[in-house]
Protein backbone atom coordinates (compact mmCIF):
# COMPACT_ATOMS: atom_id res chain seq x y z
CA UNK A 1 0.00 0.00 0.00
CA UNK A 2 2.75 2.36 0.92
CA UNK A 3 5.44 0.89 -1.25
CA UNK A 4 8.54 3.00 -1.28
CA UNK A 5 7.60 4.90 1.82
CA UNK A 6 10.67 5.91 3.83
CA UNK A 7 8.99 4.44 6.88
CA UNK A 8 9.72 0.89 5.84
CA UNK A 9 13.37 1.54 6.47
CA UNK A 10 12.77 2.80 9.97
CA UNK A 11 13.61 0.13 12.54
CA UNK A 12 10.61 -1.12 14.45
CA UNK A 13 12.13 -0.29 17.81
CA UNK A 14 10.10 0.72 20.78
CA UNK A 15 11.31 4.29 20.64
CA UNK A 16 10.63 4.45 16.96
CA UNK A 17 7.00 3.54 17.59
CA UNK A 18 6.76 6.03 20.40
CA UNK A 19 8.24 8.81 18.26
CA UNK A 20 5.96 7.92 15.37
CA UNK A 21 3.00 8.22 17.73
CA UNK A 22 4.17 11.64 18.88
CA UNK A 23 4.62 12.80 15.31
CA UNK A 24 1.21 11.46 14.34
CA UNK A 25 -0.35 13.30 17.21
CA UNK A 26 1.36 16.54 16.25
CA UNK A 27 0.36 16.10 12.65
CA UNK A 28 -3.27 15.52 13.61
CA UNK A 29 -3.14 18.62 15.76
CA UNK A 30 -2.21 20.69 12.77
CA UNK A 31 -5.22 19.51 10.79
CA UNK A 32 -7.80 19.50 13.54
CA UNK A 33 -7.25 22.67 15.44
CA UNK A 34 -7.67 23.06 19.20
CA UNK A 35 -8.97 19.54 19.71
CA UNK A 36 -6.00 18.06 21.56
CA UNK A 37 -8.16 16.18 23.98
CA UNK A 38 -10.32 14.65 21.30
CA UNK A 39 -7.27 13.68 19.27
CA UNK A 40 -5.71 12.02 22.31
CA UNK A 41 -8.98 10.21 22.99
CA UNK A 42 -9.32 9.05 19.38
CA UNK A 43 -5.76 7.76 19.42
CA UNK A 44 -6.33 6.08 22.76
CA UNK A 45 -9.48 4.46 21.40
CA UNK A 46 -7.54 3.14 18.45
CA UNK A 47 -4.65 1.90 20.60
CA UNK A 48 -7.13 0.15 22.88
CA UNK A 49 -8.41 -1.70 19.81
CA UNK A 50 -11.79 -0.03 20.21
CA UNK A 51 -14.17 1.60 17.79
CA UNK A 52 -15.14 5.20 17.87
CA UNK A 53 -18.53 6.87 17.57
CA UNK A 54 -18.50 10.56 16.82
CA UNK A 55 -21.77 12.25 17.54
CA UNK A 56 -22.04 15.80 16.43
CA UNK A 57 -23.69 18.23 14.07
CA UNK A 58 -22.60 18.26 10.42
CA UNK A 59 -19.68 20.39 9.48
CA UNK A 60 -17.72 20.10 12.68
CA UNK A 61 -14.92 17.98 11.21
CA UNK A 62 -16.04 14.41 11.88
CA UNK A 63 -15.09 13.22 8.46
CA UNK A 64 -11.90 15.20 8.50
CA UNK A 65 -10.85 13.57 11.77
CA UNK A 66 -11.49 10.07 10.42
CA UNK A 67 -9.67 10.75 7.21
CA UNK A 68 -6.78 12.42 8.95
CA UNK A 69 -6.42 9.46 11.32
CA UNK A 70 -6.27 7.02 8.42
CA UNK A 71 -3.81 9.15 6.54
CA UNK A 72 -1.47 9.94 9.39
CA UNK A 73 -1.45 6.41 10.75
CA UNK A 74 -0.90 4.94 7.34
CA UNK A 75 -4.03 2.84 7.29
CA UNK A 76 -6.13 1.84 4.33
CA UNK A 77 -9.32 3.88 4.43
CA UNK A 78 -12.85 3.42 3.14
CA UNK A 79 -15.91 5.49 3.69
CA UNK A 80 -19.39 4.03 3.78
CA UNK A 81 -22.16 6.56 3.55
CA UNK A 82 -25.09 5.07 5.43
CA UNK A 83 -28.45 5.73 3.80
CA UNK A 84 -31.87 4.28 4.32
CA UNK A 85 -31.51 2.04 1.27
CA UNK A 86 -28.09 0.67 2.19
CA UNK A 87 -27.99 -3.12 2.17
CA UNK A 88 -25.67 -5.38 4.14
CA UNK A 89 -24.09 -6.50 0.88
CA UNK A 90 -23.15 -2.90 0.17
CA UNK A 91 -21.00 -3.09 3.29
CA UNK A 92 -19.46 -6.57 3.30
CA UNK A 93 -19.41 -7.25 -0.45
CA UNK A 94 -20.98 -9.79 -2.84
CA UNK A 95 -19.98 -12.85 -4.82
CA UNK A 96 -20.34 -12.22 -8.53
CA UNK A 97 -20.31 -14.80 -11.36
CA UNK A 98 -17.26 -14.50 -13.58
CA UNK A 99 -18.04 -15.72 -16.99
CA UNK A 100 -14.38 -16.16 -18.03
CA UNK A 101 -13.56 -18.50 -15.15
CA UNK A 102 -17.05 -19.89 -14.66
CA UNK A 103 -16.73 -19.34 -10.92
CA UNK A 104 -18.24 -17.03 -8.38
CA UNK A 105 -15.75 -14.53 -7.27
CA UNK A 106 -16.00 -12.49 -4.06
CA UNK A 107 -16.02 -8.79 -4.54
CA UNK A 108 -14.99 -7.40 -1.14
CA UNK A 109 -17.11 -4.59 0.18
CA UNK A 110 -15.80 -1.39 1.70
CA UNK A 111 -15.53 -3.05 5.09
CA UNK A 112 -12.27 -4.66 4.05
CA UNK A 113 -10.15 -1.70 5.02
CA UNK A 114 -8.17 -0.87 8.12
CA UNK A 115 -10.09 2.27 8.91
CA UNK A 116 -13.75 2.58 8.03
CA UNK A 117 -15.68 5.76 8.23
CA UNK A 118 -19.33 4.78 8.72
CA UNK A 119 -20.94 8.13 8.01
CA UNK A 120 -24.32 8.94 9.50
CA UNK A 121 -24.73 5.43 10.76
CA UNK A 122 -28.17 6.18 12.19
CA UNK A 123 -29.69 6.81 8.81
CA UNK A 124 -29.43 3.18 7.65
CA UNK A 125 -31.90 0.47 8.55
CA UNK A 126 -31.18 -1.74 11.55
CA UNK A 127 -30.33 -4.54 9.14
CA UNK A 128 -27.48 -2.63 7.55
CA UNK A 129 -26.37 -1.35 10.94
CA UNK A 130 -26.24 -4.90 12.23
CA UNK A 131 -23.96 -5.95 9.39
CA UNK A 132 -21.47 -3.29 10.43
CA UNK A 133 -21.77 -3.95 14.13
CA UNK A 134 -21.34 -7.69 13.63
CA UNK A 135 -18.19 -7.11 11.66
CA UNK A 136 -16.92 -4.82 14.43
CA UNK A 137 -17.63 -7.42 17.05
CA UNK A 138 -16.41 -10.53 15.28
CA UNK A 139 -13.53 -9.04 13.35
CA UNK A 140 -14.73 -11.14 10.44
CA UNK A 141 -17.64 -11.35 7.98
CA UNK A 142 -19.50 -14.32 6.57
CA UNK A 143 -20.50 -14.14 2.94
CA UNK A 144 -22.20 -17.06 1.22
CA UNK A 145 -21.27 -19.34 4.04
CA UNK A 146 -17.62 -18.41 3.86
CA UNK A 147 -15.86 -16.64 6.71
CA UNK A 148 -13.52 -13.88 5.75
CA UNK A 149 -11.19 -12.23 8.19
CA UNK A 150 -10.99 -8.46 8.30
CA UNK A 151 -7.67 -6.70 8.11
CA UNK A 152 -5.60 -5.90 11.17
CA UNK A 153 -5.83 -3.34 12.62
CA UNK A 154 -9.49 -2.80 12.07
CA UNK A 155 -10.94 0.44 13.27
CA UNK A 156 -14.43 1.80 12.72
CA UNK A 157 -15.21 5.46 13.09
CA UNK A 158 -18.95 5.89 12.95
CA UNK A 159 -20.63 9.26 12.92
CA UNK A 160 -24.10 10.10 14.00
CA UNK A 161 -26.06 13.32 13.69
CA UNK A 162 -27.98 13.90 16.89
CA UNK A 163 -30.16 16.61 15.29
CA UNK A 164 -31.63 14.28 12.70
CA UNK A 165 -34.71 12.72 14.10
CA UNK A 166 -36.98 12.06 11.14
CA UNK A 167 -36.31 8.93 9.16
CA UNK A 168 -33.44 7.79 11.33
CA UNK A 169 -32.81 4.60 13.27
CA UNK A 170 -30.84 5.58 16.36
CA UNK A 171 -28.53 2.79 17.55
CA UNK A 172 -30.00 0.92 20.48
CA UNK A 173 -28.06 0.92 23.77
CA UNK A 174 -26.96 -2.67 23.30
CA UNK A 175 -25.23 -1.69 20.09
CA UNK A 176 -23.83 1.55 21.38
CA UNK A 177 -21.91 -0.67 23.78
CA UNK A 178 -19.85 -1.94 20.84
CA UNK A 179 -18.17 1.42 20.55
CA UNK A 180 -15.38 1.90 23.05
CA UNK A 181 -15.85 5.66 23.00
CA UNK A 182 -18.30 8.24 21.92
CA UNK A 183 -16.92 11.66 21.22
CA UNK A 184 -18.34 15.04 20.38
CA UNK A 185 -16.07 17.49 18.63
CA UNK A 186 -17.87 20.73 19.30
CA UNK A 187 -17.39 24.14 17.77
CA UNK A 188 -13.91 25.53 17.35
CA UNK A 189 -13.10 28.73 19.23
CA UNK A 190 -13.17 32.06 17.40
CA UNK A 191 -9.46 32.18 16.69
CA UNK A 192 -9.35 28.70 15.23
CA UNK A 193 -12.52 29.24 13.28
CA UNK A 194 -10.87 32.28 11.72
CA UNK A 195 -7.92 30.08 10.83
CA UNK A 196 -10.33 27.60 9.23
CA UNK A 197 -11.95 30.34 7.19
CA UNK A 198 -8.84 32.05 6.02
CA UNK A 199 -6.32 29.23 6.00
CA UNK A 200 -5.72 26.29 3.76
CA UNK A 201 -8.61 24.05 2.93
CA UNK A 202 -8.54 20.98 5.15
CA UNK A 203 -9.26 18.62 2.27
CA UNK A 204 -6.26 19.72 0.31
CA UNK A 205 -4.20 19.69 3.49
CA UNK A 206 -5.16 16.05 4.00
CA UNK A 207 -3.87 15.15 0.58
CA UNK A 208 -0.49 16.56 1.29
CA UNK A 209 -0.15 15.09 4.78
CA UNK A 210 2.43 12.28 5.09
CA UNK A 211 1.84 9.04 6.96
CA UNK A 212 3.83 8.93 10.19
CA UNK A 213 3.68 5.19 10.83
CA UNK A 214 2.60 1.85 9.43
CA UNK A 215 -0.01 -0.68 10.41
CA UNK A 216 2.75 -2.87 11.90
CA UNK A 217 3.97 -0.10 14.18
CA UNK A 218 0.39 0.57 15.20
CA UNK A 219 -0.08 -3.08 16.19
CA UNK A 220 3.05 -3.00 18.37
CA UNK A 221 1.85 0.23 19.91
CA UNK A 222 -1.48 -1.41 20.65
CA UNK A 223 0.36 -4.22 22.44
CA UNK A 224 2.47 -1.78 24.43
CA UNK A 225 -0.55 0.29 25.40
CA UNK A 226 -2.28 -2.78 26.85
CA UNK A 227 0.73 -3.25 29.12
CA UNK A 228 0.56 0.18 30.74
CA UNK A 229 1.07 -0.16 34.48
CA UNK A 230 -2.12 -0.06 36.50
CA UNK A 231 -1.69 0.12 40.27
CA UNK A 232 -4.01 -1.39 42.84
CA UNK A 233 -5.17 2.07 43.83
CA UNK A 234 -6.23 2.79 40.30
CA UNK A 235 -8.16 -0.46 40.04
CA UNK A 236 -9.83 0.59 43.28
CA UNK A 237 -10.69 3.91 41.66
CA UNK A 238 -12.20 2.31 38.58
CA UNK A 239 -14.21 -0.03 40.75
CA UNK A 240 -15.41 2.85 42.89
CA UNK A 241 -16.52 4.75 39.78
CA UNK A 242 -18.33 1.73 38.39
CA UNK A 243 -19.99 1.15 41.78
CA UNK A 244 -21.06 4.79 41.86
CA UNK A 245 -22.75 4.51 38.44
CA UNK A 246 -24.66 1.49 39.72
CA UNK A 247 -25.62 2.91 43.08
CA UNK A 248 -26.32 6.53 42.20
CA UNK A 249 -30.04 7.28 42.32
CA UNK A 250 -29.54 9.59 39.32
CA UNK A 251 -28.53 6.77 37.03
CA UNK A 252 -30.91 4.08 35.96
CA UNK A 253 -28.47 1.76 34.23
CA UNK A 254 -24.89 1.73 35.42
CA UNK A 255 -21.74 0.39 33.85
CA UNK A 256 -21.62 -3.32 33.06
CA UNK A 257 -18.50 -5.39 33.73
CA UNK A 258 -17.73 -4.94 30.03
CA UNK A 259 -18.07 -1.21 30.58
CA UNK A 260 -15.56 -1.48 33.44
CA UNK A 261 -13.17 -3.41 31.21
CA UNK A 262 -13.61 -0.80 28.51
CA UNK A 263 -12.86 1.96 31.02
CA UNK A 264 -9.68 0.22 32.15
CA UNK A 265 -8.49 -0.46 28.59
CA UNK A 266 -9.21 3.08 27.47
CA UNK A 267 -7.47 4.53 30.55
CA UNK A 268 -4.41 2.36 29.84
CA UNK A 269 -4.26 3.52 26.25
CA UNK A 270 -4.72 7.13 27.29
CA UNK A 271 -1.91 6.83 29.82
CA UNK A 272 0.22 5.39 27.03
CA UNK A 273 -0.61 8.24 24.69
CA UNK A 274 0.13 10.75 27.42
CA UNK A 275 3.41 8.98 28.24
CA UNK A 276 2.52 8.54 31.90
CA UNK A 277 4.56 6.12 34.01
CA UNK A 278 1.34 4.34 34.90
CA UNK A 279 -2.36 4.94 34.61
CA UNK A 280 -3.12 8.12 36.54
CA UNK A 281 -6.51 9.15 37.87
CA UNK A 282 -6.36 11.91 35.23
CA UNK A 283 -6.36 9.27 32.51
CA UNK A 284 -9.45 7.65 33.94
CA UNK A 285 -11.16 11.01 34.21
CA UNK A 286 -10.13 11.99 30.69
CA UNK A 287 -11.67 8.90 29.11
CA UNK A 288 -14.58 8.52 31.51
CA UNK A 289 -17.16 10.65 29.70
CA UNK A 290 -16.19 9.19 26.32
CA UNK A 291 -16.34 5.60 27.58
CA UNK A 292 -19.28 5.82 29.97
CA UNK A 293 -21.40 8.54 28.40
CA UNK A 294 -23.16 6.30 25.89
CA UNK A 295 -23.35 3.33 28.26
CA UNK A 296 -25.20 5.04 31.12
CA UNK A 297 -28.87 5.75 31.15
CA UNK A 298 -29.93 8.58 33.45
CA UNK A 299 -32.89 8.09 35.74
CA UNK A 300 -36.12 9.62 34.42
CA UNK A 301 -36.38 12.46 36.89
CA UNK A 302 -32.86 13.81 36.68
CA UNK A 303 -31.96 17.04 35.00
CA UNK A 304 -28.60 16.32 33.38
CA UNK A 305 -28.36 18.42 30.28
CA UNK A 306 -25.92 16.04 28.62
CA UNK A 307 -24.26 12.66 29.20
CA UNK A 308 -21.03 14.59 29.81
CA UNK A 309 -22.65 16.39 32.71
CA UNK A 310 -23.87 13.11 34.14
CA UNK A 311 -20.38 11.66 33.86
CA UNK A 312 -18.85 14.72 35.51
CA UNK A 313 -21.35 14.30 38.32
CA UNK A 314 -20.11 10.74 38.86
CA UNK A 315 -16.47 11.85 38.80
CA UNK A 316 -17.20 14.60 41.31
CA UNK A 317 -18.73 12.23 43.79
CA UNK A 318 -16.02 9.55 43.93
CA UNK A 319 -12.89 10.12 46.00
CA UNK A 320 -9.59 9.21 44.38
CA UNK A 321 -7.82 6.49 46.35
Amino acid sequence: MHGGSPLEKTPLGKDAGRQALERARASLGKIILDKDQQIALALACLLARGHLLIEDLPGLGKTTLAQALAKVLGLSYRRIQFTSDLLPADIVGVSVFRRDTGNFEFQPGPIFAQLILADEVNRATPKAQSALLEAMEEHQVSVDGETRTLPIPFFVVATQNPADQIGTFPLPESQLDRFLMRLALGYPNAENERELITGEDRRSMLESVAPEMTAEILVTLQQDAAKAHMSEHLVDYIQALVRQTRESPDIEIGLSPRGAQALAAAARAHAFVERHSGVFPDDVQAVFAAVAGHRLKPAGDTSFRSPAEMCQHVLDSVAIP
Partner: peptide, 9 residues
Protein backbone atom coordinates in the same frame (compact mmCIF):
# COMPACT_ATOMS: atom_id res chain seq x y z
CA UNK B 1 -8.90 18.85 47.50
CA UNK B 2 -12.47 18.41 46.34
CA UNK B 3 -13.91 14.92 45.95
CA UNK B 4 -12.80 13.56 42.64
CA UNK B 5 -10.22 16.28 42.11
CA UNK B 6 -7.14 14.61 40.65
CA UNK B 7 -3.68 15.52 41.96
CA UNK B 8 -2.97 17.30 38.68
CA UNK B 9 -6.06 19.46 38.89
Amino acid sequence: PATGETPRV
